[in-house]
Nucleic acid binder design. Structure first.
Length: 653
DNA sequence: GCGGATCAC
DNA sequence: TATGGTGATCCGC
């Protein structure tokens, strides 16, 4: 491997990546916007940030990443020495073929996303805002209206910068209660189509319409059109939807054909940044080895194979193929793993004042723990210096932590003490290794009840009763897939551009045109464009995915509804298939192999495989290890109904 | 188990 | 003047 190709990261001045980092995305995307051009917007943002501690911190992080990339490339050149490229590629191709062979196109998953949600709700309540550039939020904007986006204003942006970009910007404060209310209404409509739909934040969700379409003799498009129409009629809000993978537009709808070739073609030019789990850091790391789009994954498969540990080959191959989980399940209470609270304030050095902030946070956490019925064994203190550097200090107890404010406060102080002379801008507390007090109480009550009635009602253990039961037992219906998709965050304007080319549509953002109710284009945080995932679509949940360690896929596998028919007829004789992950030969049909693969992809299985089969020299690329370095896992599955996504919201404020 | 990082929303 | 909050996962000790 010639080292020649790589673009010297050092040559790209920090300023470039830094400016982009500070700017975020938004605005424009290239071309078209008649108003202002992105470069100018970036300049204004960088200018406004310059010299601040925030800026210095971003600069530090940017440099750290640049150095990391440099080391990565060195490592790559070393690792690629003497490697038989053709051989490695051949090996990877085999993997690809096997993954392809198990593509499941039987489920129809819809990713729905409410267009500029907060802004749309505000518009409903105050029509005068129409046509005015406005944004929702206080210190930091949660949403920017379509008009405001034309100026480069985006969610996640501090208000003072937004005003520099758009002096006439109208800023209104959040009305969380209203958003919750409207979100509930819309989600309720989605549930008519899939009772098990997975909400992802307050303005997004994944819906498996397979059963609904069958039962009502509807095509996916008809079903989704109808659903969107209903939402608009009942709430006056618009939603965009992607059927299978795709890209949504404001109040738009897009269906990707369920054909492997079509899916791959779609993925080919899709920016890697659009893949759930690939954030700004991974985007740069991948870019350093020549991967900007999902299609580039194939071209660089040899390097990815050799550097599996760093990049997560399996995850990327699935992404390349547009294969992702198609299991959609509602969020479950038992899945919660932590509960916490944190607060940002103007930098404070005085210990007594810091303690006062800590106490406030402890009080908030105490309330949330009590209300939610949670306790836990580990408590973690988090603090951010005025330099924006973040630290955590944790302590595990032998017993369940008290939910009383005083106790939480005391533990927090204890953790903070050794760090002490500090100047902080944020402090927080979080409790993990949770215990569900509500479930326990319920269980107890049930036990007592049973005792008196002497009639063993049902065996379902209180705690485990997956969603009101319907879950497993009835598995009649399929679950749906889910994967989070969406992207965005502060920074990625470019991709939008890439995508625009790709789908040719995205322009609406700048396209002034009618501002329909809204466009979802730029929102930073809640970003819009997403593709959905469909069933076969994108690939986020990589290896570890199966919902984490907690659930080896067995759970899912077993409950998987299996669509009967599916390819039953195909092979009647039980074929011997090779698992692309562990390499084991299995005598089973595709369904069985699929389940096995799901299992193999689980983190635990990977670990076992790793220890069992030593890790041979990197090169073999064999499938065993797959530690997804890049591979995030679990996509969306966010909080339950109450908390909502977008830029946070917790009414407490 | 702990602490740092990264990501989603 | 000034850049969020909640929760999760992964990796390397």
């Amino acid at each position: 491997m010639p080292h020649k190709d790589s673009n010297p990261p050092s040559s790209t001045p920090d300023t470039d990546s830094l400016v982009r980092r500070l700017a975020g995305p938004s605005t424009t995307k290239a071309g078209q916007a008649v108003s202002i051009d992105q470069t100018e917007i970036n300049r204004i943002i960088a200018e406004a940030s310059k010299g601040s501690k925030f800026y210095e911190n971003e600069k530090r992080k940017d440099k750290e990443l640049t150095d990391r990339i440099e080391r990565l490339l060195k490592h790559r050149d070393e690792a690629m020495k003497g490697v038989d490229l053709a051989k490695v590629e051949q090996s990877v191709d085999k993997l690809i073929a096997q993954l392809e062979a198990h593509r499941d196109l039987s489920q129809t998953i819809v990713h729905v996303d409410m267009d500029a949600f907060y802004a749309s709700v505000e518009l409903l309540d105050n029509p005068d805002l129409a046509s005015k550039p406005f944004a929702v939020g206080q210190g930091v904007l949660t949403t920017a209206s379509y008009e405001a986006r034309k100026f480069g204003v985006r969610s996640g942006m501090p208000t003072f910068i937004a005003r520099k970009l758009c002096p006439e910007l109208v800023v209104i404060s959040n009305h969380f209660h209203r958003y919750s209310e409207m979100s509930e209404k819309v989600m309720a409509i989605f549930r008519r189509y899939d009772p098990n739909m997975a909400a992802a934040g307050c303005d997004e969700g994944y819906i498996n319409i397979t059963s609904y379409c069958e039962e009502h003799s509807l095509t996916a498009e008809e079903c989704v059109s109808q659903m969107r129409k209903v939402v608009h009629e009942e709430t006056k809000l618009t939603v965009s939807a992607g059927i299978a993978p795709n890209k949504n537009k404001p109040n738009g709808q897009f269906k990707l054909e369920f054909e492997p070739e079509v899916i791959k073609a779609f993925m080919h030019d899709l920016s890697i940044r659009k893949v759930p789990g690939v954030g700004r850091v991974h985007e740069r790391l991948l870019d350093s080895i020549g991967i900007k789009t999902c299609g580039d994954i194939f071209a660089q498969r040899a390097v990815l194979s050799v550097m599996d540990k760093e990049f997560g080959l399996m995850f990327l191959l699935q992404t390349y193929l547009g294969i992702a989980s198609n299991v959609v399940e509602p969020w479950q209470r038992e899945e919660r793993k932590s509960i916490g609270a944190e607060r940002t304030f103007n930098p404070i050095s005085d210990t007594a004042k810091i303690h006062a902030k800590l106490e406030e946070v402890a009080a908030e956490l105490s309330g949330d723990m009590t209300d939610g019925g949670w306790t836990g064994k580990t408590i973690t203190l988090k603090y951010k210096l005025d330099t924006y550097k973040v630290f955590t200090r944790a302590k595990s107890l032998d017993k369940w932590v008290s939910t009383k404010k005083e106790d939480l406060f005391a533990i927090g102080k204890e953790l903070l003490k050794p760090e002490l002379p500090l100047t902080l801008r944020l402090i927080g507390l979080r409790v993990t290794k949770l215990k569900d007090l509500k479930a326990e109480a319920e269980s107890k009550a049930r036990g007592i009840k049973r005792f008196f009635e002497s009639g063993p009602s049902d065996g379902s253990p209180a705690k485990k009763r997956r969603k009101e039961d319907s879950g497993e037992a009835e598995s009649e219906i399929l679950q749906l897939s889910q994967d989070g998709f969406a992207t965005s965050m502060p920074g990625y304007a470019d991709e939008a551009e890439a995508e625009a080319d790709h789908m040719a549509d995205l322009d609406e953002r700048d396209e002034v045109q009618s501002l329909k109710p809204s466009s979802k284009a730029g929102a930073a945080v809640p970003q819009p464009s997403s593709h959905t995932a469909g069933q076969g679509f994108v690939a986020p949940k990589p290896a570890s995915s199966g919902s984490g360690p907690s659930s080896p896929p067995s759970k899912k596998a077993s409950s998987r509804p299996t669509n009967h028919d599916r390819e039953s007829s195909a092979d009647e004789s039980i074929p011997v298939l090779e698992c692309p992950i562990c390499g084991k030969l299995l005598e089973t049909d595709n369904q069985g192999l699929n389940e096995h693969i799901d299992f193999c992809l689980s983190k635990q299985a990977i670990k076992e495989a790793q220890s069992a089969s030593l890790k041979p020299p990197s090169q073999s690329s064999r499938t065993t290890k797959n530690g997804p370095k890049l591979a995030p896992s679990k996509a969306a599955k966010k909080g339950p109904g109450d908390r909502d996504g977008s830029l946070n919201f917790r009414k407490k404020g």
